[in-house]
Structure formats: structure tokens, C-alpha cells
Amino acid sequence: MTILAYIEQRGGQLKKNAFETITAARNLAASTGGKFSALLVGDGVAGLASQLAPYGAADVIVVEDARLAQFSSGAVSTAIAAVAVAESANVVLISNTLHGKDLAPRVAVKLSAGLVPDCVGLDINDGNVVATRPVFAGKARVDVAVTTPNKVFSLRPNVFTATAVEGVSAAARSASVNFGEKDFATRVVETKLNTGKKDVAEADVIVSGGRGFKGPENFNLVENLAEAFGGAVGASRAVVDAGWRPHSEQVGQTGKTVSPSLYVACAISGAVQHLAGMSSSKYIVAINKDKDAPIFGVADYGIIGDVFEVLPALTQEVNALHGK
């Protein structure tokens, strides 16, 4: 098995998903006796190769082009497919971020490959990859095999743990790709970053609030707890629909799918649509005054109580733990 791990960078920065993808590639290669390479695509990104070495990437392929300073799903998918062909890679791994969701289906079509998107597990059975993914809003899981010689898997962020290995130094080599004008038919012309706020899609701890807060003015309780944890604020659909919080904070079926280490659901009953967005979190804490709320059914820990009492107390205890 020859694996190509596409390493996402944004504005010349790597995020956790980059190290998760490289670790998944390394593990697949190790369990099949195969080999793997990492691929960086962008403008002036070769220097990032050294950050991949601690995760075992000895071979880093770099495709650079001034036009790739901003993301273009057409051009980047062309680059991934071209390098996969040149390297005779038969497995391509891509992180299932918003960019990855654009890239993986396009790369799969270009390579005549089957794609399993949003994987939460990759196993080997008789030398073949068996991918596990949530379906029906996380209410079921399917194990899926790809039947074509070339295979593409996209990996749900925050699920595959990045682990370091020692003694690997990365050698970067550049590859050239002949882009056509059409590859740049879609291009990002501006990226507006949220300032000062952590995004739920990237946070390791999320504190989410529901309608039980009675009004937007009481969300400072959620913000304070999120700050104590060093995490991000999330929201249920009900409070976003009511205009209390922006859609960018919404967790759930019509919002974002998140898998933080810790998810704290405050005054959220746990409708299936909400569970769809957060049930793959590593630890779930529920705080609700209704002991029969469905959220307690998926919680690892919980407190039955009124958020107006529990949150200030909890914020104080977390701050105390951190010596604040």
C-alpha cells in the first residue's frame, strides 16, 4: 500500500488535523507494510515540512505555485491527484475539514477511486482498509470497504489521535503540477478570520448553551465557563434560531460537527439533531435541571441542576483548579 497524506495548511499554518492525518497514514503504512508520503500544497509552504517530521513524515512532497496563496479546490484537488498518480499512491488520506470536504470527492473522481468520507476509524482486514463512519446523524455506524484499486478516505478532525515518533527527519522534495486555467475557476478572494474567539470546530473544550438560559444576556455564564476551560462557546439550534447567538457557534445537524476532548452541554435537552453534531466528543458533561433530559443518556458526567446555580459554581471550581 502506498499512501499519500494530504496535509492541510491555511495561510502557511498547520493545525492539529495535519498531525492527525500524518499519524493515520503512518499507522496504516505500519500495519500493511506499506509506505507513506506527506503532501503540502500552497505558496511558500516547503518550510512546514520540518513540523511534520516529529509525527514520522520522512518524505514530504511540496507543490508550490503563487496562485495557490489562496485556497482553490479545483487546483488543490488537481495537485493531489497528479502527485498520487506520479507516486503510484493507491490510498489518499485527507482531513474532513471544510476544505477537505471540497477536495476528497474531486480527488476521488479524478483518480477513479471510491471514497469513504468522514471516517472515525480505519482498520485493516485481510490487507484491505475497512473504514468506519457515522451515518444518520450519528445514530448508526457503517463499516465500508472501497472496491476500486485507488481509495480515498477523509478523516473526521479530532478523532484520530496525533502521536509523535522520535528520530525521523523530513526530506522535502518539490513536485511540479501542470495547472490549467480552469483549475482556478473557483478561488478564495478573502478570508475573514474570527478575531479573539475560538471556533467550535477547532476547540478542544466546548461549552454549549441552550434555551434554558432564557435570553442572550445570560450567555455570559456560558462564556465565563468556556473561558475558565480555555474553550469555545457553542449553541443549540434553538438559541441560534432565536437570534441570541451567531450561526457560526451552532453545534448540531444544521450547524457544525465537533469532536472536542470535552463537551459541556448546559440547558440543552439533547435532541437528536444536537447529538448529531457532538456525540463523537471524547467526554460529554450534561448540566440540566430535567433529570430525564436525553442528553444525560450520552453523558459521561452530569449535574442535575439549574444552570443559573451550577455554572457560576463550576466556573469558580475550574478557576480554582487552575489557581485563579
Binding site: 457515522p134 465500508v144 458533561v285 442535575i304 463550576l314
Partner: peptide, 30 residues
């Protein structure tokens, strides 16, 4: 191009630790 091998329901979380609100239990949660 893909073949579903099997579908299953996710494993239910076993016995979450659910506590009644009290200052002691908040400390215990932390």
C-alpha cells in the same frame, strides 16, 4: 465504488456519573 460491510448502532455509553447539584458535587465533577 464502495461496499457497505455492515451497519450497527453505536455502543451506548455505560453508566454516566450523574450527580445532583450541590457545591460538593460541583467540586467532585471538576
Amino acid at each position: 465504488r464502495t461496499r457497505t460491510i455492515g451497519m450497527r448502532l453505536p455502543e451506548k455509553k455505560q453508566g454516566g456519573k450523574i450527580l445532583e447539584f450541590s457545591p460538593e458535587n460541583v467540586r467532585e465533577l471538576v
